Computed example of a mutant assay.
Amino acid sequence: MKNSDSNCLGFKGAYQEIETPIFCNEAKSEHGISVRHSKMLTNNELRFRMNAEDGSAYIRTVTTKESQGWQNAHYHKYLKETYLVEKGWIGYVEKLNDKIVFKKFKSGELFTTIPLVAHNIYMPANSVIHTVKHSANKELTETDWFGDGDDCKQIHTAISKRSFKEVDYDGFPTTEKPEKPVKQELYNEAYRHFDTLIWQVPAWSSALFAAVIAIIGAVFGIDSESVFFSEFIPQNVLVSILLLFFGLFTLALSYALYRFRWHQSNVKPWGGRLISPQFFLQLLVSVEAAILLVGALVFLSIELTYPVSVIIALIAGISTYYEAKLLTKTKADSHTGFSESSDHGFSFTSDVIKQKGS
């Protein structure tokens, strides 16, 4: 390890078993990431930068009790800058619709500028902000920072004539007002979609079950000595085929219900209760499938002791497997904050979106 790397890279708290260091030279040559730190001559603030070749960057800006004042007024053609106040507060000014607008942001608040709007930042003493530059135009050959326009000159004139008072800086910039912190909907659209399907499957299954019973009743209402039954297919065989087909179809519905429950838990974990209303819905569909399958054997006059035992064991095993998988999954999700999706990796499932900005 070079001395320069040893001095500038922080390895305290690093987890040797899950990460290896990327040194400054490799970061720049292989990944286009460089660091640049400096003390600004305009207001003596300290800037600690990490820059990417595509124009995006992160900057931590710090002022001490000896450093405060305005930065340089500027605008970007494509870049956006997201500012987050870590400590203290900052003043903000922009030229918008021929008006000079002053704002103030306190610790924990954030906002984002938009391109072609000239702006400037006032850094009081003992403040810290984070700035993320993003949405760069990769085809732009020059640095996307311009401080020579008329709007920038007007901002410079405005701040030089105006005495600074904290009360003058209240609210959000009118360029891109961040959303208010909101609690994520308890049941969002995706959750409600799967919830609808989960309740519909047992309804479909029960309707199908009733229809099959009605069809069987109609079949037995026909004379078993009729030409159709005597020449084509025996009455009991036809009924058995119907019961077998719809029994397997209902079993497939049971699996579909399980998958809907699985995907719903990716949107919002259901809490890991051992017995839930959905468990009884799942059990209902599985029992209906079992009754239809046993009925198919009954009408074939098959000795039932062994087959029925197998079917009951199969349904019980499948139901137990479904519930165990869901229970294990939701407990794991509650510990990690993420939920596993069998098709698309992982998706975040936090209940609250925290974005302070109002």
Rank of each mutant, 00 (worst) to 15 (best):
residue 231 E to F: 08
residue 175 T to G: 09
residue 230 S to G: 05
residue 142 E to K: 04
residue 170 D to F: 15
residue 196 T to M: 12
residue 164 F to V: 12
residue 157 T to S: 11
residue 147 G to K: 01
residue 228 F to S: 06
residue 176 E to K: 06
residue 215 I to W: 01
residue 162 R to V: 09
residue 156 H to F: 13
residue 186 L to S: 14
residue 222 I to M: 10
residue 220 F to M: 08
residue 165 K to A: 11
residue 209 F to I: 03
residue 210 A to Q: 02
residue 173 P to S: 14
residue 225 E to Y: 05
residue 221 G to A: 07
residue 180 K to M: 07
residue 153 K to N: 08
residue 205 S to C: 11
residue 201 V to I: 14
residue 175 T to P: 02
residue 225 E to M: 11
residue 207 A to N: 09
residue 159 I to G: 00
residue 185 E to Q: 14
residue 212 V to R: 07
residue 198 I to T: 05
residue 152 C to S: 12
residue 187 Y to F: 14
residue 226 S to W: 00
residue 187 Y to V: 13
residue 208 L to E: 00
residue 138 K to Y: 04
residue 200 Q to P: 07
residue 239 V to I: 12
residue 170 D to Y: 06
residue 175 T to K: 06
residue 143 T to R: 00
residue 224 S to A: 14
residue 178 P to C: 13
residue 140 L to D: 01
residue 193 H to T: 09
residue 159 I to W: 05
residue 163 S to N: 11
residue 206 S to R: 04
residue 171 G to S: 15
residue 200 Q to C: 05
residue 149 G to F: 06
residue 235 Q to N: 02
residue 176 E to N: 09
residue 151 D to G: 05
residue 189 E to M: 14
residue 234 P to L: 12
residue 175 T to C: 10
residue 232 F to R: 15
residue 227 V to A: 14
residue 158 A to F: 01
residue 178 P to W: 03
residue 183 K to L: 08
residue 155 I to M: 03
residue 191 Y to V: 12
residue 187 Y to K: 15
residue 162 R to C: 02
residue 147 G to Q: 07
residue 199 W to D: 07
residue 216 I to M: 07
residue 182 V to G: 02
residue 148 D to S: 14
residue 167 V to E: 15
residue 236 N to C: 04
residue 212 V to M: 09
residue 191 Y to H: 06
residue 221 G to N: 12
residue 201 V to R: 01
residue 208 L to Y: 02
residue 183 K to S: 04
residue 216 I to P: 05
residue 179 E to Q: 08
residue 156 H to S: 15
residue 197 L to A: 03
residue 236 N to Y: 02
residue 153 K to P: 02
residue 158 A to L: 06
residue 155 I to V: 11
residue 167 V to T: 15
residue 159 I to N: 00
residue 151 D to L: 03
residue 183 K to M: 01
residue 205 S to A: 15
residue 154 Q to M: 12
residue 171 G to F: 10
residue 148 D to K: 12
residue 181 P to C: 03
residue 236 N to R: 10
residue 164 F to T: 12
residue 148 D to L: 11
residue 190 A to E: 14
residue 154 Q to T: 10
residue 180 K to R: 12
residue 158 A to N: 05
residue 149 G to I: 03
residue 213 I to M: 01
residue 159 I to L: 05
residue 155 I to S: 06
residue 239 V to S: 08
residue 227 V to Q: 13
residue 192 R to W: 02
residue 225 E to I: 02
residue 148 D to T: 13
residue 187 Y to W: 09
residue 139 E to A: 10
residue 237 V to N: 06
residue 140 L to Q: 08
residue 150 D to L: 11
residue 179 E to K: 13
residue 144 D to N: 12
residue 143 T to G: 02
residue 163 S to I: 14
residue 183 K to E: 00
residue 224 S to H: 11
residue 194 F to W: 09
residue 224 S to R: 13
residue 238 L to S: 01
residue 162 R to H: 03
residue 144 D to R: 07
residue 192 R to H: 04
residue 201 V to L: 05
